[in-house]
Design a protein around this nucleic acid. Structure first.
Lengths: 240, 240
DNA sequence: TGCCAATGTTGCGCCAGCGCAATTTTCGCA
DNA sequence: TGCGAAAATTGCGCTGGCGCAACATTGGCA
């Protein structure tokens, strides 16, 4: 089993309230596992035998219906708890987690969950906050899909991705992992084709810069305007 | 302060693991409050100073964007925890809860939350499960809105309402609180007009029975078929 | 009991965005 | 270095369901 140094995790909220000795104790029960890009950490429908903390990398969490329709539920960044199905009393994972880039995660056995939260109440609090903020995000998404035009939803999605996993580059802010037009479509409830058209139009206007599995936000401010419902500059005809 | 009898709540999951004396102790910190139909238990954006357990009735939880677009987030039934914003580290309520019928709820001060979960770990577990199952529901909704036709989404919504708050009547299963076409529209991300048209068509076919603020499911089985993607009987033309 | 506001119904026209398809570009890998 | 598959682009036609509008119905309340 790989040993994990306390310093890697000590400043995460989940470990914040614990004494160093307690941190070590919690870490001793965990395994550190490496997931190459493209590999699954767990699969939807399989038994939820572990819960995880992402140490490094990015995961794409996706869900598929019995009819085969797939959606991207969210992306996980380093420092986040995930796969806490046991905490919500689920016996099986409700979604699949795939490494978007080479990633490393700590894994605890689900069977330890109930014992651990008694010993480390901050773990329960962390989980509650994690799940709570996911609920907020998901509800925000429902409102976006319900009430907004596709263009606004794509703008919102990109801004959220940039906030969560943006990396400053010369041209602006780049989303720090490979993401396809298809992925964006599955996040916003639209199609690959529509996303491609929108990004092309935005590239014309200098709002974004595209590439294969690559998106750079060049003008987050104007993008925010679009997300809030302002009319795009060149995509609409002027008033007659 | 109204005193609450232990027997009202003893069989709820939240109280299941507690000794009678502990149940009383927890109850002593709560107030029982009556909310007449149409009144708000709390309003979106106000300080989250309490959390609640619904003892009797039904609440409609709604969320409104700065732009004024409103959605129905969910309905709360008796026995459910709600308003646990504090547990998710929110200082303000993210939505409004309105009594759909005359309702009664227990209210605890949010400030007691952190102390109570240390004393009663089952409270944290309950909250985690409550929030977790809401997250599952909300994610299911995202997938429905993303991937399904409006007719399927309305069918799903009605089935879910009937499951959660259905009352058996002669004609089938009636949703146990007043609900308007507008409410259904706001649950499914569509418009009042479209919902009205769909319900009218279904009524023709004997699938449902409508009325002012009233919906009865007469044929849940065929409705499930619609929700799963089968073609409606009379609403589509036969193949040429 | 009668009025009024809330709720629900329905016809009509339009358009955002989907579905399909053909083509191009790019990267991973042998 | 070259090949094959994955990703992306773009044109075209169609349609589900939205927006508008006019009207009907119903229940609560004075």
């Amino acid at each position: 089993m790989a040993s994990v140094d306390r310093s890697l995790v000590a400043n995460l909220p989940m470990f914040a309230g614990l004494a160093p000795a307690e941190q070590d104790e919690l870490l001793q029960e965990a395994r550190s596992i490496r997931y190459p890009k493209g590999s699954a950490v767990f699969d939807q429908g399989t038994e939820a035998d572990r819960f995880y903390l992402l140490l490094h990398g990015h995961l794409r969490v996706e869900k598929i219906t019995p009819q085969g329709q797939q959606s991207v539920v969210r992306y996980v960044s380093a420092g986040e708890l995930f796969g806490v199905a046991q905490a919500m009393n689920l016996t099986h994972y409700p979604a699949t987690a795939v490494a978007a880039v080479d990633s490393i995660a700590l894994a605890w056995p689900s069977s330890s969950w109930n014992r651990l939260i008694v010993k480390f109440p901050s773990l329960a609090s962390s989980a509650l906050q994690t799940v709570g903020s996911r609920l907020q995000d998901t509800q925000a998404r429902v409102m976006e899909i319900s009430n907004e035009q596709v263009e606004q939803r794509v703008a919102h999605a990109l801004l959220r991705l940039a906030k969560q996993a943006g990396r400053k580059v010369d041209a602006g802010v780049e989303i720090d992992f490979p993401i396809s037009r298809q992925d964006v479509a599955e996040m916003t409830g639209t199609t690959l084709h529509t996303v491609s058209r929108i990004l092309s139009a935005w590239e014309q206007q200098g709002l974004v810069e595209g590439g294969r599995q690559r998106i750079v936000l060049r003008d987050a401010h104007r993008l925010l305007g679009l997300a809030e419902g302002e009319e795009a500059a060149q995509t609409r005809k002027p008033a007659p």
